[in-house]
Amino acid sequence: MAVIGAGAIGGAVIEALEKGRVPGASLIAGLHSGSTSNEIDSAIAASDVVVEATTVDAAEEFIPRVTAAGKDIIVCSCGVFARHENPRDLISAPHDDSGTPGRVFVPAGAVGGLDVLAAASRAGKTDARLSHFTIKSPAALGVDEELTESREVFRGSARDAALRFPRTSNASVALALATLGLDHAEVVVVADPRVTRTRHVVEFRSPLGTYEMSFENSLDPASGGRTSAITAWSVAELLIGIRDGVGPGAVVLERG
């Protein structure tokens, strides 16, 4: 496999692969902004799975590039899907007309329970409601004002949250894609100067049941307070699931 990006998530995934902590997976290449087009194409061709852990703009480029080569891609910068009415539009037809395009995987990242919520959503979305509350430090959210207490800085759809906070809304996008869609999942973003961890609260209500989950994650020190340390390990667990043909809750997008 190849990893694109060597920041907080990409660097941790590369380290886990190099230390043999992801059974059945080996690193072909670690790619970065200085990698040439030929190096990137060679790494994609030699890999079964590519991990994107860079930026939304880079994800916009690499999703069609990797899927057109018939390879699967795990997208960590999943705010990219908010730019498209249909996220599957990013998946490109294979170069070879007889081939099959690669799949796009969105890891659960900093939250869990996607399997339960996806099942409840499949049973019926008409009367279902999803709310995702995310509490982070003002610095992580790009709030320049000096706060002395918590403040709600956003309330709206998962799509709008990802467009406004493209680097910190990955969990919201994953939850929305697994359940009610980007335009029907509600996101509430709170800036709290007192937090030392990132907190996520997920509330889902439907005729099938009521589900409430809370996650409090340690921060990856290399991320500037934006990324939960668990996120890279969510990617590692997903890689094992892809190998085994089963796995943890994740969103899978395929070309229609």
Results as ranks from 00 to 15, higher is better:
residue 2 A to M: 14
residue 3 V to F: 09
residue 8 A to Y: 10
residue 8 A to I: 11
residue 9 I to Y: 02
residue 14 I to N: 02
residue 14 I to H: 04
residue 16 A to Y: 05
residue 18 E to H: 07
residue 19 K to G: 00
residue 19 K to A: 09
residue 20 G to P: 08
residue 22 V to T: 04
residue 23 P to Y: 02
residue 24 G to P: 03
residue 26 S to V: 10
residue 28 I to D: 05
residue 30 G to H: 06
residue 32 H to P: 03
residue 32 H to S: 10
residue 33 S to L: 10
residue 35 S to Y: 08
residue 36 T to M: 05
residue 38 N to E: 15
residue 38 N to A: 14
residue 39 E to V: 03
residue 40 I to M: 06
residue 43 A to H: 04
residue 44 I to P: 04
residue 46 A to P: 07
residue 46 A to V: 08
residue 46 A to G: 11
residue 48 D to I: 06
residue 52 E to C: 02
residue 52 E to S: 10
residue 53 A to Y: 00
residue 53 A to M: 02
residue 54 T to H: 06
residue 55 T to F: 03
residue 56 V to M: 05
residue 57 D to M: 04
residue 60 E to Y: 03
residue 60 E to S: 07
residue 61 E to V: 08
residue 62 F to N: 00
residue 63 I to L: 07
residue 65 R to E: 02
residue 65 R to N: 03
residue 68 A to E: 11
residue 73 I to D: 02
residue 74 I to F: 02
residue 74 I to H: 01
residue 75 V to H: 00
residue 83 R to H: 07
residue 84 H to C: 03
residue 84 H to F: 14
residue 85 E to I: 08
residue 85 E to N: 13
residue 85 E to Y: 08
residue 88 R to V: 09
residue 89 D to E: 15
residue 90 L to Y: 03
residue 92 S to I: 01
residue 93 A to V: 03
residue 96 D to W: 05
residue 98 S to A: 09
residue 98 S to F: 09
residue 98 S to Y: 09
residue 101 P to G: 04
residue 105 F to C: 00
residue 106 V to I: 14
residue 107 P to N: 06
residue 107 P to W: 01
residue 108 A to D: 01
residue 109 G to W: 00
residue 111 V to F: 00
residue 111 V to N: 00
residue 114 L to T: 03
residue 116 V to N: 03
residue 118 A to K: 01
residue 118 A to N: 04
residue 119 A to V: 00
residue 120 A to I: 02
residue 121 S to A: 14
residue 123 A to D: 03
residue 125 K to G: 01
residue 125 K to S: 07
residue 125 K to W: 01
residue 126 T to R: 12
residue 131 S to P: 00
residue 131 S to Y: 04
residue 133 F to E: 14
residue 136 K to S: 07
residue 136 K to A: 08
residue 141 L to P: 01
residue 142 G to W: 10
residue 144 D to P: 07
residue 146 E to R: 14
residue 151 R to H: 05
residue 152 E to H: 06
residue 153 V to S: 05
residue 154 F to T: 10
residue 156 G to E: 05
residue 157 S to P: 05
residue 157 S to E: 03
residue 158 A to H: 01
residue 160 D to P: 04
residue 161 A to C: 15
residue 163 L to V: 04
residue 163 L to H: 07
residue 172 S to A: 15
residue 174 A to F: 06
residue 177 L to I: 11
residue 179 T to V: 12
residue 180 L to K: 09
residue 185 A to G: 13
residue 185 A to I: 06
residue 188 V to Y: 13
residue 188 V to F: 13
residue 191 A to H: 13
residue 192 D to N: 15
residue 193 P to G: 11
residue 194 R to W: 12
residue 196 T to A: 11
residue 196 T to I: 08
residue 196 T to C: 04
residue 196 T to G: 11
residue 198 T to I: 15
residue 199 R to F: 07
residue 203 E to K: 12
residue 206 S to Y: 08
residue 208 L to H: 14
residue 209 G to A: 14
residue 209 G to D: 11
residue 212 E to Y: 13
residue 217 N to Q: 15
residue 219 L to E: 07
residue 219 L to T: 09
residue 220 D to L: 10
residue 220 D to W: 08
residue 222 A to I: 10
residue 226 R to H: 11
residue 230 I to R: 09
residue 232 A to I: 09
residue 233 W to N: 12
residue 238 L to G: 12
residue 239 L to N: 10
residue 241 G to H: 12
residue 244 D to K: 15
residue 245 G to Q: 13
residue 247 G to Y: 12
residue 250 A to T: 11
residue 251 V to G: 07
residue 251 V to S: 08
